[in-house]
Amino acid sequence: EFTQISGYVNAFGSQRGSVLTVKVENDEGWTLVEEDFDRADYGSDPEFVAEVSSYLKRNGGIKDLTKVL
């Protein structure tokens, strides 16, 4: 089950073990991109978060400006 990723309007994530599946949706709710990120592939949590965040930004993730990150 996908849940909204904090700080984004149209990005959602689903966690299974160490694998986080993220997706970005358009205004109609269609999935634009979907990608798996395995936490085990990264040396640290900040590196993992930075990679996921960068992916979302590159692929149309819209920041939720009503929330302070």
Rank of each mutant, 00 (worst) to 15 (best):
D36N: 12
S44D: 06
R39V: 02
R58V: 07
N26E: 02
L32I: 12
K57S: 13
R16A: 06
R16M: 05
V24H: 01
I62N: 04
D27G: 10
R39A: 04
N26Y: 05
Q4G: 06
L20I: 06
D41K: 11
S44Y: 02
Q15H: 07
K57Q: 13
Y42T: 00
L20Q: 01
S44M: 01
Y8E: 03
L69Y: 09
L32K: 05
N59E: 04
K23V: 08
E34F: 10
G7Y: 06
Q4S: 07
Q15K: 11
E47C: 09
K23F: 06
D27W: 09
L32Y: 07
S44N: 06
G43A: 13
K67R: 08
K57A: 13
G43K: 11
E51Y: 10
T21A: 03
L56M: 00
S44H: 02
S54F: 09
G7H: 05
V9Q: 07
S44I: 02
F48K: 01
T3D: 05
A50D: 09
P46G: 14
I62T: 05
S14H: 09
V22G: 00
K63D: 07
T31H: 04
L56D: 00
D38T: 02
G60A: 05
T3Q: 09
D38G: 02
S14K: 15
V9P: 03
N59M: 10
G7R: 05
K67M: 13
L32M: 12
E25N: 11
R16H: 08
L32R: 05
E47H: 05
V9L: 12
V33C: 15
E25F: 14
A40N: 12
E1N: 11
V24A: 01
G60S: 03
E28Q: 12
F48L: 03
V19Y: 03
Y55E: 02
A11P: 00
E34K: 11
D36W: 08
G60R: 02
T3C: 15
D45H: 08
A40P: 00
F37L: 03
N10V: 05
G29C: 06
A40Q: 09
V19C: 07
Y8K: 06
R16F: 06
G29I: 02
R39Q: 03
E47D: 08
D36G: 06
P46H: 14
Y42S: 00
S53D: 14
S53L: 14
Y8D: 03
D64A: 10
G43N: 12
V52K: 01
Y55Q: 02
K57R: 10
Q15L: 14
R58W: 06
Q15G: 05
G7P: 07
N10G: 02
T3W: 13
V68R: 09
S18L: 06
N59L: 08
N59G: 03
E1G: 13
S53H: 14
A11V: 13
K67E: 13
G43Q: 10
G60H: 05
K57G: 09
A11Q: 01
L20E: 00
E51N: 08
L56Y: 01
V49T: 09
E25V: 15
T66A: 08
E47N: 03
V68K: 09
T66E: 14
S53E: 15
T3M: 10
D64N: 08
Y8P: 04
A40T: 08
E47P: 01
D27T: 11
E47T: 03
P46I: 14
E34I: 14
D27P: 11
P46W: 15
G43V: 08
Y42H: 02
F12Q: 03
V49L: 14
S14R: 15
L32Q: 07
A50V: 05
P46K: 14
I62W: 04
V19N: 00
E35L: 08
G43F: 08
T66F: 10
V22A: 01
G13K: 10
S18Y: 04
E47S: 04
I5S: 04
V68C: 15
D41L: 10
A50C: 13
S14W: 14
E28D: 11
Y42P: 01
V49K: 09
V49N: 11
S54N: 13
W30V: 14
S18N: 07
V33A: 14
D41Y: 08
Q4C: 15
G61N: 02
I5A: 04
G61D: 01
T31W: 06
Y42G: 01
R16P: 01
S14L: 14
D45S: 06
V24Y: 02
D45G: 07
D36H: 12
K57V: 09
N10Y: 07
V52P: 01
D64Y: 09
E25I: 15
S53V: 14
V68D: 14
G60Q: 04
K63A: 11
V24L: 07
T66C: 15
T21R: 13
E28C: 15
V52R: 00
S6Y: 14
A40S: 10
S18D: 04
S44K: 01
S53G: 09
G60N: 04
A40V: 07
F12T: 03
V68E: 14
D64P: 05
W30H: 13
N59P: 01
N10K: 05
S44V: 02
Q15P: 04
V9R: 09
Y42Q: 00
A11N: 01
K57T: 12
D27R: 10
E47Y: 03
K63E: 13
D64F: 09
A11G: 03
E1V: 11
V68Q: 10
G13A: 13
E34L: 11
I5Y: 07
S53C: 15
K23I: 09
G43W: 06
K23E: 01
S14V: 13
V9T: 11
Y55M: 06
V52F: 03
G43C: 13
E28R: 10
E1D: 10
F48I: 01
G17F: 06
V19K: 05
N10W: 05
E35Y: 13
E47W: 04
D38Q: 02
I62S: 04
L69S: 14
Q4D: 04
G61L: 09
E28A: 10
S44G: 05
